[in-house]
Design a protein around this nucleic acid. Structure first.
Lengths: 220, 220, 220, 220
DNA sequence: AATGAATGAGTTTTCATTCAT
DNA sequence: TATGAATGAAAACTCATTCAT
């Protein structure tokens, strides 16, 4: 097997997985993502520059461009990393659901638990330097929305759900999930279970079924 | 047609209050805001530069700074214009509410009707150049959230609402309002009344009380 | 005549020719061209960067980009400036020509005289840092070649020239003009008249009619 | 199909002179030159970077530096390859010349025939991305000019040529050679013989002796 | 008050070259 | 020797802001 040196170009020597070179590449990518998460959380996405990210890294400026084209691409990578991790879990949970209650509660529980564990990412993604709040949904995230709507459609077809407007219902679930998650992360005494219970109760019975507050004295 | 003949006499050349000069000032401000709306909608907030806005204007770059300090300020002005218009209406409606139902339904109805009328602004604010979706909430908007929470607290105090978590409830209402509004604007056959009915039913009785779809055959 | 301030954009206020602003603009453009000529002559076109040109200028870096997009554009401007000046002269001379001799001799004489006067430019355009010699012909220059060919065609039609290959003849004239001009500029004792006589004699009677050297011994 | 079975025996692994290793080296060098020719022709010399050349190659960037120091060196190699091939032929032809006519006609004939055969190279060297035309003469090429001048001097000394200005005559021959070659390559119905005849006639008797066009009806 | 060119700090980006594998 | 990612100096370019007119 005499392979001519002067041929391929695409992947000349696959750099066998696990080699030191390969290792460094994976590590550098993660280094950049880590730095970006930190900087986004500090300065907010809008104010962050590629330089800022590089500065938060031991790497050279040129190295950044071996991995990403722009801060947008880094942002998307962070977002997508999250979306790609949580989406299969959500689908799986919902697939197992035998009732509305299971469908709704497992969706919220999974989501809030994930957010609680991944709080750093969530903050990085959400925060902005000025008191402005930002939310950016990448295609990968939006795909998660579509999956939810599909699951709702299927649940309707299976008579698990009544024949409601799947688009609106998806929107309502998404809206509640993200906004409540934010309160959970920003607020003080909350935990994912409480958030999930709240959201589930809302969807299962409306305001009337919402859990009552422990301390009736309200908070600022 | 601003005549203002009375004050006009003594100073033929210099600026007179309410005169053409004054007119131009108001007009220029509006010209900039209009251009900004267009450019934000085209490029997305992040990618837009002050230059872009000026370019979309017949004005000179220096002139911009007579009206705004930065694109942030322009953005806020656009957002605030909306927020400052809708917030008093919402407060008013909620103040009149004698029951949960009135509180919830008037909130959603007012919001969705406003969005439907102000669709252009809504889209401008939401859209981004790539397929990424963005939402930015300025302090003025966030203040509206706080007002809602205050109104909820008050309603709880007045025993109109059960003693639920006001923070979470506010978040849930906000989340549903924005996400459903988006579906309404982006979708085809929807109108503010349907959106309001949907959201109100959700909050009044949960999923079980949601209106059933007219055509049970689902949509893509 | 009340002109609305908020209208035009293209040329809002023409900045009346001769105004100080207008003056500065013209001057800055010339400053950049001057600097570029110098730097090209020093470093050669290939090695020159936009930075180099800016550095040779009292202007700010951004200012450069108000006038030119790149060093290529500057180069072309220099070349074009020359081409646009000499071309009308050449056409004029050739239009007056009543015979081959007049046609040929006026062409060369005009060209060599121009080069001699404009030697700085010529060197700037020609020189390169390494011992490599460069010649770049911009569209504006190439247009001059086409004009020459047209004039030849016309002279053939008018029976001033025999029916030779106009394309080749044009090429021969151009080649001799540029190469001999270079020897004239680089060499020591030559003047435009001698160069013109040489070239004209060559075209009028071939090698046999070329002027004999004064000092038969000579070497470069 | 390089077998080389004889030397192969004693050292199965290490490099053997003339072996596969040696082969690859020569091949790689040629691969780079080939790629460079292509890229220079596409982007023009100035715009081409070493990266561009490597990219057009199946080789790694580091490998490039085992063969050349810079794009300049590659360019020179291409140019020199040509120059070093044609120069001895030209000298030889001119050395045999017994008369002006032989001297001139053999020079042009050899040159134009070479260009016609080597058209690809010629175009690569000449062309630029924009409509600008470039000509770069490397030292190796310029050396060819000097050789021509020396041969002229010698011909003058041998009384084959009249005592004309050798520098100018060399320039004239070079100028005509390159420019007419370009027309030949770019134009349509021309062949090296016609080009050579044209140039030779010009130098032997001036415009009056140039061959007449076959179709007197002119060309665009 | 409007204009728009100049400014120059700062950002993005490229790319020749090195060097561990 | 080949590889190709890392490097970082330098180049390219942008753009908010100023300020003379």
């Amino acid at each position: 097997m005499v392979t001519d040196t002067v041929t391929a170009k695409p992947e000349p020597r696959p750099a066998r997985a696990g080699g030191k070179r390969e290792q460094t590449k994976i590590q550098n990518r993660e280094t950049i993502l880590e730095a970006a998460r930190k900087v986004f959380a500090e300065l907010g996405y809008g104010a962050t520059t590629v330089r800022d990210i590089i500065r938060a890294t031991p790497l050279a400026s040129g190295t950044f461009y071996n991995y990403f084209q722009s801060k947008e691409e880094v942002y998307q990578a962070i977002r997508d990393e999250v979306a790609l991790e949580i989406r299969p879990r959500l689908r799986e949970e919902r697939a197992k659901a035998k009732s509305i209650d299971e469908f709704i509660s497992s969706t919220f529980r999974t989501f809030f638990e994930f957010v609680a564990r991944d709080e750093g990412n969530f903050r990085a993604i959400r925060h902005n330097a000025d008191s402005t709040r930002v939310r950016m949904d990448t295609p990968e995230v939006l795909a998660g929305f579509t999956e939810l709507r599909e699951d709702i459609e299927k649940a309707i077809a299976d008579a698990i759900f009544p024949p409601v407007d799947a688009d609106f219902l998806m929107a309502a679930i998404v809206g509640v999930a993200f906004e409540v998650a934010e309160r959970m992360v920003i607020g003080d005494n909350h935990n994912p279970s409480e958030a999930a219970e709240f959201a589930t109760a809302l969807f299962m019975g409306g305001v009337h079924k919402l859990p009552h507050r422990k301390n009736a004295a309200g908070t600022a």
